[in-house]
Design a binder for these strands. Structure first.
Length: 359
RNA sequence: UGGGGUAUCGUCCAGUGGUUAGGACCCGGGAUUUUGAUUCCCGUUACCUAGGUUCGAAUCCUAGUACCCCAG
């Protein structure tokens, strides 16, 4: 189990740097790979992105330190096509997309994995906090041991074929202090580098501006309504809002109010009490069953409706058209179309999909 | 323009002689976070105006101003 050629996805951060060192030390023949996902002119000094020139330099340095080759692959076209464009289209349709899921599915474990196999590598390794196991039933995708950092939520799109060629060396470790200690023991410059956060391709977190620059269209102002239809104020573009949002509404009421409806057709945003956000069932599409098999019967399991949410007990029912209906034991807050929902049985990811609507 | 009522942070309210003028919401900053949100912490901002009574007034009195209600 300690031989083979591994392409290690290197972001320039702590996790992937430690990941590479661990694999090298374990005897794997490694090459570091960094994907260039944004175009060069998008690099803005001082604004952190996941693929800035600085990060590529960090990745190169980490590879140098580890004594392995470093290669940079330009996937900016694929990234634009498979991640950014759908992201923009989703917002314009009034949805709240999760670009990280798309990036994992289409880029890291899509294009990059395909290329790796083509080039004769056996595996692609990343610094994700998740685990892959194998038994007679096939490959299993499990949560990372570090429950605070578990990233299996973003990986539900992995299939049996892909899991066979994926390695997550950090899946059994704790980020703090284990991974950072290892980084420190190797003297990695990234040991204390801050975790990445925010959408990597949206500078400053202003996705409205990003979308406007991308499309050349200015999102029109519109009314902010209460649940009775009364006008409470004006919004600066309906796609700036997402279900359950409280901050940035500019509306002062006796109680905090939350976005409970975004209508990009009527161009209105509706605000209401938190209890109006509760719902017990949803239907998700683009569903992937990690096992490769659609269950014949409804499955008693637990699901997340958003990242970093405790698993919520539910029953998952496969629908004839490939979609899956989740019925939760308890009402869930702000189930948001466009977001991912992931089904778990204990630590194992059974599958996941994109929330289409709430019932 | 008859009678009654109310005027306090951006908003809604609390505070009836001595308070660092309090809270909620909004807003700003930070924490958390490989999506968007949520959540948590910290913070800025106010007594309608002019007189008067008091050792002392957001608090009492008078006038002015503004708004509201009932009358008409």
């Amino acid at each position: 189990m300690t031989s083979g050629r591994v392409l290690v996805a290197m972001s320039g951060g702590v996790d992937s740097s430690v990941c590479a060192r661990l694999l090298v030390d374990a005897g794997y023949e490694c090459t570091g790979a960094t994907m260039r996902l944004a175009t060069n002119e998008d690099d803005r000094p001082g604004e952190r992105t996941c693929c800035s020139t600085d990060d590529i330099a960090d990745a190169r340095q980490a590879c140098w330190d580890a004594g392995i080759r470093h290669r940079v692959f330009d996937y900016s076209r694929e990234f634009a096509r498979d991640v950014i464009d759908p992201f923009v289209a989703a917002y314009e349709a009034g949805l709240t997309p999760n670009p990280c899921v798309a990036c994992n599915r289409h880029l890291k474990f899509g294009a990059l994995l395909d290329l790796a196999l083509e080039l004769g590598y056996d595996h692609v390794a990343t610094g994700h906090y998740a685990r892959v196991t194998h038994d007679v039933a096939g490959w299993h995708l499990l949560k990372g041991v570090d429950t605070r950092k578990d990233q299996s939520y973003f990986l539900f799109g992995l299939t049996q074929e892909r899991l066979a060629h994926v390695m997550f060396p950090l899946g059994g470790m704790l980020k703090d202090p284990e991974v950072r200690d290892i980084a420190a023991s190797y003297g990695l410059t990234s040991a204390n580098k801050k975790d990445s956060e925010g959408i990597c391709f949206v500078p400053g977190g202003d996705h409205l501006r990003f979308i406007e620059e991308r499309t050349g269209r200015i999102a029109p102002e519109g009314d902010i309504l209460d649940t009775e239809g009364n006008v409470l104020g004006r919004h600066q573009g309906a796609l700036r809002y997402t279900l359950g949002q409280r901050k940035g509404l500019g509306v002062a009421c006796a109680k905090p109010v939350y976005v409970c409806k975004v209508d990009t057709v009527a161009n209105t945003v509706t605000l209401g009490d938190e209890d109006r956000l509760m719902a017990s069932a949803l239907v998700a599409g683009e569903w992937n069953w990690v096992s490769g098999h659609v269950p014949a019967e409804p499955v008693r399991a637990a699901a997340k409706v958003r990242y970093r949410q405790p698993d919520q007990p539910c029953v998952a029912t496969p629908l004839p058209d490939g979609r899956v209906r989740l019925e939760f034991d308890a009402p869930q807050r702000a189930i948001t179309p466009g977001q991912a929902t992931v089904l778990y049985l204990g630590d194992e990811v059974l599958g996941g999909g994109t929330i289409e609507h709430v019932e």
